[in-house]
Amino acid sequence: HITLTNLITEETTHVVMKTDAEFVCERTLKYFLGIAGGKWVVSYFWVTQSIKERKMLNEHDFEVRGDVVNGRNHQGPKRARESQDRKIFRGLEICCYGPFTNMPTDQLEWMVQLCGASVVKELSSFTLGTGVHPIVVVQPDAWTEDNGFHAIGQMCEAPVVTREWVLDSVALYQCQELDTYLIPQIPHSHY
């Protein structure tokens, strides 16, 4: 019994991606959610070859190996599938703050939850000092008015990073160091 759908849910078992011959794909929301959820992320060749051979072929032979941004053979989907007991964002409290493009905020929040993070909706909701690490995620190029994202640091004691930190961490299924993704914050004294 196979159901085809464009939506990823808890029940989804396989995410089928358009890939090149070496099982490398573009980074899409579907790709990120498939990895975050520990699903099989496979090339569409799995479907076409299975139909051709009239049997369901082994997914291992068709698993996506990499993507056009993070590298052609990083094995993120395999790492995620085999590490669902070791979520990459466990112990983190993440607030997805401000506008985002090409990806609804609720989907970004679901993605970080699938990776083990707790989501907070407001900067004031962080449970500071409880052994949980707060992180604010923003997408600077989605902000149309002044660079308000440079002043988020005044509203909460949390590192502010770009959305790329989430996307790179999920694609590779390895929590990336914050340093290269940090957004400089204007210190309090400048006000």
Results as ranks from 00 to 15, higher is better:
residue 21 A to D: 06
residue 126 F to I: 12
residue 37 G to T: 03
residue 87 K to V: 05
residue 169 S to T: 04
residue 156 C to L: 13
residue 117 A to P: 03
residue 158 A to S: 08
residue 116 G to E: 13
residue 6 N to W: 09
residue 62 F to R: 01
residue 167 L to A: 04
residue 167 L to V: 03
residue 56 M to Q: 15
residue 37 G to P: 00
residue 153 G to W: 10
residue 97 Y to S: 08
residue 69 V to F: 00
residue 110 W to G: 04
residue 65 R to T: 07
residue 44 Y to R: 03
residue 103 M to T: 10
residue 102 N to K: 04
residue 62 F to T: 01
residue 108 L to I: 05
residue 86 R to T: 10
residue 96 C to R: 02
residue 41 V to E: 02
residue 113 Q to M: 13
residue 167 L to W: 02
residue 49 Q to V: 09
residue 111 M to R: 03
residue 166 V to G: 04
residue 69 V to N: 05
residue 160 V to L: 08
residue 125 S to P: 09
residue 111 M to A: 05
residue 146 D to G: 10
residue 97 Y to C: 02
residue 111 M to I: 12
residue 21 A to L: 10
residue 157 E to P: 15
residue 4 L to V: 06
residue 8 I to C: 02
residue 167 L to G: 03
residue 88 I to L: 10
residue 166 V to M: 01
residue 170 V to L: 04
residue 36 A to P: 01
residue 47 V to T: 10
residue 45 F to K: 07
residue 84 Q to C: 05
residue 62 F to I: 00
residue 30 K to R: 00
residue 97 Y to G: 11
residue 134 P to A: 04
residue 54 R to T: 13
residue 98 G to V: 02
residue 9 T to I: 07
residue 158 A to E: 04
residue 189 S to W: 08
residue 187 P to Q: 11
residue 118 S to T: 11
residue 43 S to K: 01
residue 158 A to T: 05
residue 148 G to A: 07
residue 122 E to R: 15
residue 17 M to P: 02
residue 155 M to E: 08
residue 70 N to V: 10
residue 150 H to C: 08
residue 1 H to Y: 08
residue 21 A to K: 10
residue 121 K to Q: 15
residue 69 V to R: 12
residue 30 K to A: 00
residue 107 Q to R: 14
residue 166 V to A: 07
residue 133 H to L: 15
residue 125 S to W: 15
residue 117 A to G: 09
residue 23 F to S: 15
residue 95 C to G: 03
residue 102 N to Q: 15
residue 88 I to V: 15
residue 70 N to L: 09
residue 1 H to S: 07
residue 114 L to S: 04
residue 91 G to S: 10
residue 31 Y to S: 02
residue 108 L to E: 02
residue 48 T to R: 09
residue 86 R to C: 13
residue 110 W to K: 14
residue 157 E to M: 06
residue 1 H to L: 12
residue 38 G to S: 05
residue 62 F to S: 01
residue 185 Q to R: 11
residue 79 R to V: 12
residue 45 F to P: 03
residue 138 V to L: 07
residue 24 V to L: 05
residue 126 F to W: 06
residue 45 F to Y: 12
residue 106 D to G: 09
residue 69 V to T: 13
residue 57 L to G: 09
residue 68 V to N: 04
residue 84 Q to P: 13
residue 22 E to L: 09
residue 67 D to A: 00
residue 90 R to S: 14
residue 13 T to I: 02
residue 184 P to Q: 15
residue 177 E to T: 10
residue 137 V to M: 01
residue 84 Q to A: 10
residue 14 H to L: 05
residue 16 V to T: 03
residue 87 K to I: 05
residue 12 T to V: 11
residue 70 N to M: 13
residue 163 R to W: 06
residue 23 F to A: 13
residue 43 S to V: 00
residue 93 E to G: 15
residue 152 I to V: 10
residue 21 A to M: 09
residue 21 A to E: 09
residue 104 P to Q: 14
residue 128 L to R: 05
residue 121 K to R: 10
residue 189 S to V: 08
residue 63 E to T: 10
residue 139 Q to P: 04
residue 153 G to A: 08
residue 72 R to L: 10
residue 110 W to T: 13
residue 95 C to F: 10
residue 76 G to S: 15
residue 188 H to E: 07
residue 6 N to H: 06
residue 25 C to S: 13
residue 191 Y to I: 13
residue 94 I to S: 00
residue 85 D to G: 14
residue 20 D to L: 02
residue 64 V to E: 02
residue 73 N to F: 07
residue 63 E to A: 12
residue 32 F to L: 00
residue 93 E to H: 07
residue 181 Y to E: 03
residue 34 G to H: 01
residue 62 F to Q: 02
residue 75 Q to T: 15
residue 134 P to H: 15
residue 180 T to P: 07
residue 27 R to M: 01
residue 76 G to D: 00
residue 165 W to Q: 01
residue 148 G to W: 14
residue 119 V to L: 09
residue 136 V to L: 14
residue 174 Q to D: 04
residue 97 Y to T: 10
residue 176 Q to R: 13
residue 139 Q to A: 12
residue 66 G to V: 00
residue 136 V to Q: 04
residue 40 W to G: 01
residue 189 S to Q: 09
residue 69 V to Y: 05
residue 97 Y to N: 09
residue 35 I to L: 11
residue 72 R to E: 11
residue 50 S to H: 03
residue 108 L to R: 01
residue 122 E to V: 15
residue 178 L to K: 03
residue 105 T to M: 14
residue 144 T to K: 07
residue 81 R to T: 01
residue 32 F to M: 02
residue 120 V to R: 08
residue 35 I to S: 04
residue 177 E to A: 10
residue 79 R to T: 11
residue 36 A to Q: 00
residue 41 V to H: 00
residue 99 P to L: 11
residue 133 H to Y: 12
residue 74 H to V: 05
